[in-house]
Write a protein that binds this DNA or RNA. Sequence first.
DNA 1: CTGAAAGCGCTAACAC
DNA 2: GTGTTAGCGCTTTCAG
Lengths: 334, 334
Amino acid sequence: MSSRLKDVAARAGVSVRTVSNVVSGTASVAAGTRRRVEEAIEELGYRPNLAARSLRAGRTGIIGLAIPELHSPYFAELAGRLVREAQRRSWTVIIDQTGGEAEAERRLLAQGGERAMDGLIISPWALDSAELAAAAPGTPLVLLGERSPHGVADRVAVDNVMAAREATEFLLAQGRRRIAAIGLQPHLRNGTAVLRAEGYRGALRQAGLEPVVEAERAVEALHRADGARAMAELLDSGSVPDAVFAFSDELALGALHTAHTRGLRVPDDMAVVGFDDIEDGHYSNPALTTVSPDKQQIAERSLQCLADRIYSPGTAVPPQDLVVPHRLVRRASA
Amino acid sequence: MSSRLKDVAARAGVSVRTVSNVVSGTASVAAGTRRRVEEAIEELGYRPNLAARSLRAGRTGIIGLAIPELHSPYFAELAGRLVREAQRRSWTVIIDQTGGEAEAERRLLAQGGERAMDGLIISPWALDSAELAAAAPGTPLVLLGERSPHGVADRVAVDNVMAAREATEFLLAQGRRRIAAIGLQPHLRNGTAVLRAEGYRGALRQAGLEPVVEAERAVEALHRADGARAMAELLDSGSVPDAVFAFSDELALGALHTAHTRGLRVPDDMAVVGFDDIEDGHYSNPALTTVSPDKQQIAERSLQCLADRIYSPGTAVPPQDLVVPHRLVRRASA
DNA sequence: CTGAAAGCGCTAACAC
DNA sequence: GTGTTAGCGCTTTCAG
């Protein structure tokens, strides 16, 4: 069997208290004692038992992150930043890919309820707010990008309506008039697409243009293939737009591909604006103009929300609705 | 604060023992008592504390799975099966994407050492066997696909030499004589590519052909793009092969793409065989002939190895080297 | 600076 | 079929 604190103490000829101090570095220990303890730890190959520590502390030091898919560049980049920030706070992150499925989202919440995790960050696609809130009472929860009613959980997101409006206004300012939108997702609970469509339409109306249904293309998922398909539909529809606002960079890159294949010149014949500012967009041909959410702030503030609730469970702060900044990054595609 | 077993017991007017029995279903409980307890659980919103249960049981019920990348179809399919099999055994799986990096592989092993996980399944790309064995003594470890010296850990893999030999022999039997290989990875510790190259060369020699260096293409990673690039190099090299054995299906699909683009007809001008039998290969154009490792068996036997060591830690069975079956799936590409 | 001991929430051996 | 209780390995309060 493996060695415990008590074994190390016996070997070093000190009490468990002292060994614990050496391991955790909490209190100060005399140099000689410390050395003896460290030797004993080395010789016995002692490793602290995390389960015991969790039980004692009432915390596991683990937080759960539920995102639809890790292979999507936006979520991969965001997850990367969240993991790095979590490490700074000495938290371990368990990443759960939900595939946008309700069952997977529920599973993570259930584990949260069993205190397997100190907090959850979830990008909900399938579950509605009511179910989210009911599933893990007592476990700090941060929602990413979902339009949730107040009172459910902390929420961190950009102002999707405003961001979409700015992207569309940018295209209008360049004299574009037939601006299509790619990325509606009527089949999902996720309200992000709804908000971006709202901003897009608002900008058009303000410019005296009436949104037309044919210019708004729904997609199954937010991948390149969906964007490529949507663009093909637009081009085949007869009324070719002079600009496209895609609700994600992946969609935009797919659309760019189709435009290129069909012989359209971007941005001369058609301008393209995306959303997310993923790494690929820097290197695409042409480089992609896009709405850039401040991912670092999303990561930092999400963890700050969790930390506030984990370390001060008594303080009943009402759920916050944090809006992180975004900016329009102008590159060659528009 | 949340409720404990004791609170439920007080509310239902029974002892903690009885509540524990109801929750775990271990012993039989009188119907009336059970109902009262269940009501109390419901009213108090009781959820068992996993940390306490783990401490008591000496197990966490969590196993770690470290794979290089989840977005690679082969690993995604394998991970899917492993997760499903683990669920059947009431284990939770923590998936760690290592990106093939040593640091990430070490991190998971360290957590294993702290008993955060009952066992580890790792597909090692960066760490060598010595480091793997030293990092988490006492934690059951299963290695996937690595050529490890005996005595280190259980290993589960197909017979890579034999499988590669059969694939090459299949091409030879069709009269192909200029057979190229795509997928050498001299920069990685991972020995899989070495073994497949060995089988490939063995088959050639047995047919009286001497392997030529120019026909063996090294790749950075095992993705479609690498396969496409390698095929382009082959075609540009002057000596165009009449068959290609790719060490992964993704490489093969990339190669297929390049061949198609360059106007070569597959399988008429060139036959292509892959390795892995991923879903995409069923639907590629032409459908891909490939070596199909029995993924279900890899999953089942890996977990069986873990189970044996987790539930019978006393029995010091020497590390096993399990060879799972494979078969050549003949489709249109060869 | 160090020792003794309580207790985190749960399970199961030992009573009855 | 149910109650009582020791103890999993750790941290930390209380003494010294």
